[in-house]
């Protein structure tokens, strides 16, 4: 499955591996990336670092997604802080961010840009 598509994009899985309105985790270039699938948004897919910087464990893909005051967010399953799916910013603690990865759907392929 680790076919390099073009440049530094990497196909990590197919749409079928994603879970509707929820997250899964992929290993991309040694990094744990949480991938969220919200098919009724324009982008449909979002990718953030899987490590919860507050709970200090690799769990973000297992959080509940939703929206708060217009921002699309995921809630940490450990201590419930919310992170913006587009910017990675923590809503409750200023200055805390999750890394954001470029991600796109190409047909059924889910592609993530490998950190260069």
């Amino acid at each position: 499955m680790e076919a390099v598509k073009q440049d530094d994009w990497q196909t990590v899985c197919t749409r079928d591996d994603l879970v509707l309105n929820s997250g899964v985790c992929a290993l991309v270039g040694g990094e744990q990336v949480a991938i969220f699938y919200l098919p009724d948004t324009d982008r449909q897919v979002f990718a953030l670092g899987n490590r919860d910087p507050i709970g200090k464990a690799n769990v973000m893909s297992r959080g509940i997604v939703g929206d708060l005051q217009g921002q699309v967010v995921v809630a940490s399953p450990l201590y419930k802080q919310h992170f913006n799916l587009e910017t990675g910013a923590c809503l409750e603690e200023e200055g805390v961010f999750l890394p954001v990865y470029d991600i796109q759907l190409d047909g059924d392929a889910v592609n993530v840009k490998v950190a260069g």
Binding site: N21, L38, G63, I64, V65, G66, D67, L68, V72, V73, A75, K80, H82
Partner: peptide, 9 residues
């Protein structure tokens, strides 16, 4: 909206 970690569970 989409719901959240309060209303969904």
């Amino acid at each position: 909206g989409r719901g959240c970690d309060i209303c969904k569970p």
